[in-house]
């Protein structure tokens, strides 16, 4: 199956410094594949290279080496641009135009015919919750409202692939919920969504696959389940109908025992414990099982660990170089 988005060794060096220019590598040999219909979360701390990647995909900047393809065509291909939508980070639009006029202008660039254009502009503004404000000049819009206009223009051409750079930025909790629902709706329609974010809870809820970028390098890539499965850090066993004295016998083998209420206990076991054996003992003593769950790292734990690992790696490389 052809990837919706594909990069191979995509690299971008910027020249920094005033007099003596030296190269600064913002993105280092990025290779990713995003399948059609995926909601792909592109995660990383500030300055990791997320926006650089998106700009490379939009051909707002050009790669130093490597290649990028969207829908099987080179990034920047005019025919491809008819089939994609893009929301830049902190978008700015012509503030002398109204939301309606802006979308009408972009609709013309997409060659959407007059009547259809009007209908589509109206429908998308309705969907994004922009009511009577659509006839106000954009200079009067709040940051959150501009973000909604940005989303509206990204969806105007009914795109197959949608690139969203920090789509939750500047939105209040209600706005974030709306955008989350919108992304889920687009996913259900079979569209491919590539969004960058540093808000991990959003990625956890929305993404089928994620990539973690740190200092321009790919630190992890996969489904959220895959990335978390390797990091089971224990078990939580909840049992009911067991006497306190029986539970206390497990003190040496459990990490923590918490009485929830009455004869209901939460027993946290380490990875070295065998939960099946403990459960069998407790059931033999009259307990009944409520639940047994693995304790996995959250995406945030994984994220922090990968950022730290790359940081350590960079320090070690620096040390060797100096040495």
């Amino acid at each position: 199956m052809q990837a919706a988005i594909r990069t191979r060794d995509l690299t971008k060096d910027f020249a920094v410094g005033f007099w003596r220019k030296r190269p600064y590598r913002a993105l280092d040999r990025l290779s990713i594949d995003v399948a059609p219909g995926d909601v792909f979360g592109f995660l990383g701390p500030n300055g990791a290279g997320k926006t650089t990647t998106l700009k490379l995909l939009m051909q707002l900047i050009f790669p130093s080496s490597g290649e990028a393809e969207i829908l099987g065509r080179p990034a920047g291909d005019i025919a491809v641009r008819r089939r994609i939508g893009y929301l830049p980070e902190n978008p700015y639009f012509y503030d002398h135009l109204t939301a309606e006029e802006l979308l009408d202008y972009y609709g013309r660039l997409f060659r959407i015919a007059g009547g259809e254009r009007g209908r589509r502009v109206s429908a998308i503004l309705d969907r994004l919750g922009i009511g009577a404000e659509r006839r106000l000049q954009l200079r009067r819009f709040s940051k959150g409202m501009l973000q909604r206009v940005g989303l509206a223009q990204a969806l105007l051409n009914d795109p197959e692939v949608i690139f969203l750079d920090e789509p939750m930025s500047g939105l209040d909790p209600l706005g974030r919920r709306d955008v989350r629902n919108l992304i889920l709706e687009l996913r259900d329609q079979g569209r491919t969504i590539f969004f960058s974010s540093h808000i991990l809870s959003d990625a956890e809820v929305l993404c089928s696959r994620v990539a973690i970028l740190v200092k321009g390098q790919l630190a992890a890539q996969g489904t959220i389940a895959d990335l978390q499965a390797f990091h089971v850090r224990g078990w939580e066993l909840i049992v009911h109908g067991v006497e306190d004295s029986i539970v206390q016998r497990l003190r040496g083998r459990a990490r923590r025992i918490t009485r929830i209420e009455g004869a209901r206990y939460a027993i946290e076991l380490g990875t070295e414990s065998r939960p099946e054996q403990i459960l069998t003992e407790l059931i033999a003593d009259g307990a009944s099982l409520v639940s047994l769950n693995p304790l996995r790292d959250t995406l945030e734990d994984l994220f922090v660990r990968r950022v730290a690992e790359v940081g350590e790696g960079a320090r070690a490389e620096g040390g060797h170089a100096r040495g």
Partner: peptide, 14 residues
């Protein structure tokens, strides 16, 4: 400077 060129050049405009 105002970055209005970003969404514009993502449209089918050379």
């Amino acid at each position: 400077d105002r970055r209005s060129v970003y969404p514009l050049l993502a449209k089918p405009v050379r």
